[in-house]
Design a protein around this nucleic acid. Structure first.
Length: 851
RNA sequence: GGGCGCGUAGCUCAGCUGGUCAGAGCACCUCGCUUACACCGAGGGGGUCGCCCGUUCGAGUCGGGCCGCGCCCACCA
């Protein structure tokens, strides 16, 4: 035991020991019922971890450590989510490159010495992927270092990456099985599209952002005998793509209009006036134009009313060339349509919108001034321009038809906290389509599929050639399907590889399978799946949690885990969410260095499950105080401790142990309920009381030279310290390991979780009653004595000539049980009990020798 | 528009199934270097528990209605 215990250096020392001794190594031989498996969130590897990560991963680690001490064999792997857009973006900026699948592979490629963001070098997909792998590997090492410093009890031998070969194999295998069972399918259909990344995106990746816009009132002239009509739109640039005008079926004012035809302004295209119940007769003019496609409602109308497609928007977000006069593009005045459209073609949506307004003004079809409006617009969450809807070929996984099953699954799952289930159900009920899993990107898991090309050069998408499971993982852009030669790639009569990659959620929805080595190591998988716990934040319920349940339901017909522990976010001091784009993120390494890992973990563990928590370094100071206190209290209790007796015989000792037993019971119940914060709070609160009162009260006996006097307190101190060290171990792994090592064999993190029953049994050793009251009264009197000394401006060791305690007979009797300790702790010469109804204490201090 | 959560001392928050629950830490003030700890200890001031009804012998604690904040979802033309 060190002379002056310190927290400094504990992280390095003990993490090295844990690594060396395999303290957190998962025992693959453990039977399933003794395994506690965790589906750790693989953090996105694209830069650095921030305090939000530290926050939620600490919660999981506390639970993992608790379960381990409960005797469970904890399966706690780490994963790195390194595939997907964030990595691509980072690689582009970091190396000054961009991926161009048409560029051939250059085996001797080296990234530019001076990266230029403005003029990136176009490189091949294999070269690009190499750079992605290189950069993520560096990041992953830094992440691992941070996690080790934080003290996560991860088994680092089980680490996986979502771009790794095994993850690819498992993803592709799962995809092929879904294709086989009909749960995955390909479809050419209107798809949510990001025009900057030029890829499809999923409903789950959308977010609303408030944007300024304008409402334009536009005249559509009658094409036959009916009246003109006015519609309102925020997207006049899409008039060329208008395929119908709609009214509500019950709208009397529009009765004579319905069934007639109108002509679009500028282009003179005839469009029918139809009805649909989704039209709001109160909104705008009560008439709405349907375009292919302006928003998701357009898609609904288009589908349900079997309208034609007139697409004007290209994948790059610019207006396409369209064949005016050709079938589908008829016009009453083709020349005018061509002239009008020439003003728009090739322009971006915003440019085309401004020009359209000018054209409408000139033609007199714009009625009144455009009215500024602020409205929510859908964005890809990582995107910078609004999503558009573009028709393209994509892979989907069926979700719509499984909604009831998914909701039932959600009800079977134990949510912590329980109210988070509502978010899941809201989301499932609001699903508007199946899950689009294909992305027109590069750094991801490819679809293990090729297509035949017929003699005319057409790609036969409806006859996919699938890879054999033994071939996996395959990259169809370089690998060749059975029965073909490499030279047949892209040739008539040859084949074409599917160019897309899977969305990152399509891979991470399989983390239980990837971590558990599904299909690779069935013995392991059977021991860990379904898993016990999915910890994650609430913002990805609709993505990660939802898709993981979906995949597990489709492939195994079971929940992927029994419990979902949902953590909140870390908010900055202004209660705003920390995010890179806001620039208010706090990186954790310097916090770990300044306060120590245990202190940072203390702050994190104080955040209740599911609750957003403000970033607060003050609480880290509190955590540090607690750790230091444990260090010193342990030293006091254990250093040169006299031999302990057979049993706890002193009333105050057994009363303290009885209280501690209750705390153990409460902490245990809290942990069982995944409420680590409550477990910590109860433990901590009692620990401070223990230091302030119990340790002070028993000092006299503890230092007593006669073994007889110290026997009981020695035993009680050892018992209680051992319990405190273990109760705090899930939260403060470093300092608890340090103090444990002073007097115990092995790691505290493999020690058994304390049992309330054992303590209660030890506390009963005195075999008397009234111990609890003795402790309460003794503490009450001690507080009064301290108050008197403080008010007299004297030190706590100042001698007291006389203390008169007025109280009920019962309490005075109890006081007698603890009076020896009280007299010693208060330096009291004479303790005088006086029976009374009201508790009152008179303290007569000895004269101050210093004057 | 629907749903969820939150509103308790200046700040961050505990208060689980109604009756020592009006609390903790920080901050503030005063005192004390007492042999575990000055990275400390002792003590103090400070709140009509968002508002209004109701249930009850009794309500931060339950029910209803408001107000405010935050988040999620929504077919937001």
């Amino acid at each position: 035991m060190p002379e002056r215990p310190t927290l400094d250096g504990l992280e390095q020392r003990w993490s090295a020991v844990w690594e060396r001794e395999g303290a957190y190594r998962f025992d693959r031989g453990a039977p399933r019922e003794r395994v506690y498996s965790i589906d750790t969130p693989p953090p996105t590897v694209s830069g650095s971890l921030h305090v939000g990560h530290v926050f939620s991963y600490t919660h999981t680690d506390a639970i993992a450590r608790y379960q381990r001490m409960r005797g469970m064999e904890v399966f706690y792997p780490m994963g790195w989510d390194d595939n997907g857009l964030p990595t691509e973006r980072r690689v582009q900026n970091h190396f000054g490159v961009r991926c161009d699948p048409l560029v051939p592979h250059d085996p001797s490629f080296a990234p530019p010495a001076e990266p230029s963001e403005k003029e990136p070098v176009a490189i091949s997909r294999p070269n690009f992927v190499e750079l992605c792998l290189r950069l993520t590997e560096t990041d992953e090492q830094a992440f691992e270092q941070l996690w080790r410093t934080l003290g996560l009890s991860v088994d680092w031998s089980m680490t996986y990456t979502t771009i790794g070969e095994q993850a690819q194999r498992i993803s592709q295998r799962s995809f092929l099985r879904l294709l086989e069972s009909g749960e995955a399918y390909q479809l050419e259909a209107p798809t949510l599209w990001d025009v900057d990344f030029q890829t499809a995106v999923a409903q789950a990746e959308l977010e609303d952002r408030e944007r300024q816009g304008a409402m334009h009132r536009v005249r559509f002239a009658a094409a036959g005998g009916g009246p003109d009509a006015l519609i309102e739109t925020t997207r006049p640039e899409l008039i060329a793509a208008c395929v119908a005008v709609l009214a509500h079926p019950g709208d009397e004012r529009r009765r004579e209009l319905v069934g007639t035809e109108l002509q679009t302004p500028l282009f003179g295209t005839r469009v029918p006036v139809l009805t649909h119940p989704l039209v709001d007769p109160e909104k705008g003019t009560g008439l709405v134009m349907v375009c292919t496609f302006g928003d998701l409602t357009d898609v609904v109308w288009w589908r349900e009313l079997s309208l034609p497609v007139r697409s004007v928007l290209g994948p790059d977000g610019r207006l396409l060339e369209v064949p005016w006069g050709a079938p589908g593009w008829e016009s009453a005045d083709v020349e005018r349509a061509v002239a009008s459209y020439a003003e728009l073609q090739g322009r971006t949506v915003n440019q085309a919108r401004r020009r359209s307004v000018e054209l409408l003004e000139q033609s007199g079809d714009l009625v009144g001034e455009p009215e500024p409006v602020t409205r929510p617009v859908k964005f890809f969450e990582k995107g910078e321009r609004p999503v558009e809807i573009i028709t393209s070929r994509q892979w989907f996984i069926r979700a719509m038809e499984h909604r009831e099953q998914l909701i039932a699954a959600g009800r079977e799952l134990s949510w912590h906290p329980p109210y988070m289930r509502a978010r899941f159900e809201d989301w499932v009920q609001g699903l508007s389509g199946d899950w689009n899993i294909s992305r027109q990107r590069f750094f991801g898991v490819p679809f293990p599929v090729w297509y035949p090309i017929d003699e005319s050069g057409a790609v036969l998408h409806e006859q996919p050639i699938t890879a054999r499971e033994e071939q996996l993982p395959v990259d169809p852009s370089t690998d060749v399907p059975d029965g073909y030669e490499p030279r047949q790639r892209g040739q008539p009569g040859g084949f074409a590889g599917d160019p897309d990659v899977m969305d990152t959620w399509a891979t991470s929805s399989l983390t239980p399978q990837i971590a558990g080595h599904a299909g690779e190591d069935e013995d392991l998988f059977a021991r860990v799946f379904p898993m016990d716990l999915r910890p994650q934040a609430h913002d990805i319920i609709r993505t990660w949690l939802f898709t993981t349940i979906l995949r597990s339901q489709l492939e195994y017909g079971t929940l992927p885990w029994r419990n979902a522990a949902i953590s909140g976010w870390v908010l900055d001091p202004d209660r705003k969410k920390m995010s890179k784009s806001k620039g208010n993120v706090v990186t954790p390494m310097h916090l770990l260095e300044e306060y120590g890992a245990d202190a940072v973990r203390y702050w994190a563990a104080s955040g209740r499950p599911g609750t957003d928590t403000a970033f607060d370094p003050k609480q880290m100071k509190d955590g540090r105080r607690l750790a230091v206190k444990l260090l010193n209290a342990s030293k006091f209790a254990l250093a040169d401790l006299p031999p302990e007796g057979e049993a706890v015989t002193h009333p105050l000792d057994s009363a303290m142990l009885a209280r501690l037993a209750a705390v153990v019971a409460e902490a245990t119940a809290s942990f069982e309920d995944y409420d680590y914060a409550r477990a910590l709070e109860r433990t901590e609160r009692f620990f401070w009381w223990y230091c302030d009162f119990y340790l002070e009260l028993v000092k006299g006996r503890r230092y007593d030279a006669s073994p007889h006097a110290a026997a009981s307190v020695s035993r009680a101190l050892r018992l209680s310290l051992s319990v405190f060290q273990r109760l705090l171990a899930p939260f403060l792994p470093f300092v608890t390991e340090e103090v444990w090592s002073w007097w115990q064999e092995g790691s505290v993190h493999r020690a058994p979780w304390p049992l309330a029953e054992e303590l209660a049994a030890a506390a009963a050793g005195a075999g008397r009653n009234g111990e609890e009251m003795a402790l309460a009264v003794t503490a009450d009197v001690l507080r009064e004595v301290r108050k008197a000394k403080t008010q007299a401006r004297r030190g706590m060791r100042a001698p007291v000539r006389r203390v008169v305690v007025r109280d009920t007979a019962q309490r005075l009797q109890a006081l007698e049980l603890g009076s020896d300790d009280l007299v010693a702790a208060g330096a009291i010469e004479l303790l005088e009990p006086v029976e009374d109804e009201e508790f009152a204490v008179e303290v007569e201090l000895a004269p101050d020798p210093s004057g």
